[in-house]
């Protein structure tokens, strides 16, 4: 069976809520029912077929031909299956997802992977603010899933992250890993004040902006941990894996909070 494919007919006139387009939901619906799914967010009450041509059949593998920064909640609550977007996505991609794979060939809006407990998210382009960060009122940012951003990420990447692995091939904005509860965030470079308010967890970076004074230098990192980390990262991003040395320089903090987190500088 070929992937169930949604081909964008024209740029969307408003933000779309695509959270209903997940295998668990689509498996129970006929083609006609799928085409009638509401995806609009305004009083226009847009239906799927107003914007997309539907083709293919396999509801476990979904494909969006064309994307938009107005594609919100792509793959939200995904439990299994695969979603590929050949284009950009809007905010909250993979929100609270528990499993499966999402691949975005373009850029992602804010809050990608917020609350995601399992599965893998890959963004080929850049991600906006709070990638792997928490939404308003959400308990956690990334919470066990794997989030790979090949380009850059905005500010507050990994905010309130609780578990899982987040990789940024390029640079993040300021306050990467803010209020991290646990988990691992690795980036080629991060902006100013990484790890602000972090309790536990690991941030590994090639270069970094200003550190807050509540991070303290504490010598070299742990060799065994670094080897394990390299292996885990290598599965998703070879360049970042190569960046990780056996003996990075380690800062511990944020001592404004619990202070049991670490920033590993791999320069």
């Amino acid at each position: 069976m070929t992937a169930l494919t949604f081909t964008l007919k024209a740029p969307p006139p408003e933000r779309l809520d695509l959270s209903s387009l997940v295998p668990a939901r689509l498996q129970r619906l006929s083609r006609a029912e799928i085409e009638r799914l509401p995806v609009g967010t305004s009083r226009r009450a847009l239906k799927l077929a107003d914007l997309f041509a539907v083709s293919g059949a396999d509801p476990v593998e979904l494909r969006f031909e064309g994307g938009s920064e107005r594609f919100d909640q792509v793959g939200a609550h995904l439990a299994d299956g695969r979603i590929l977007v050949d284009g950009d996505v809007g905010q909250r991609c993979g929100l609270d997802m528990a499993g499966g794979d999402i691949e975005v060939r373009g850029d992602a809006g804010p809050f990608i992977g917020a609350g995601a407990t399992g599965g893998t998210l890959v963004v080929h382009g850049n991600a906006a603010e709070k990638a792997g960060g928490a939404v308003h009122g959400g308990r956690y940012g990334l919470a066990g899933a794997t989030l790979v951003i090949r380009g850059d990420a905005g500010p507050r990447a990994g905010d309130r992250m609780r578990r899982g692995l987040m990789l940024v091939g390029g640079a993040t904005g300021d306050h990467a890993g803010s209020r991290m509860i646990a988990g691992t965030l690795i980036a080629r470079s991060v902006g100013a004040e990484p790890g602000l308010g972090m309790r536990r967890g690991t941030i590994a970076v090639g270069t970094h902006g200003t550190l807050v004074p509540t991070f303290m230098p504490s010598g070299a990192g742990d060799l065994i941990f670094m080897r394990l980390l390299r292996r885990a990262v290598g599965k998703h991003h070879l360049d970042l894996a190569k960046m990780l040395p056996d003996d990075p320089f380690r800062f511990v903090g944020d001592q404004a909070a619990l202070g049991k987190g670490e920033i590993l500088v791999c320069g």
Binding site: E193, L196, G197, V212, P213, T214, D254, Q255, A256, A257, G259
Partner: peptide
């Protein structure tokens, strides 16, 4: 950061 230092 200074508020952070006070907490520390």
């Amino acid at each position: 950061p200074t508020l952070g230092l006070l907490r520390a």
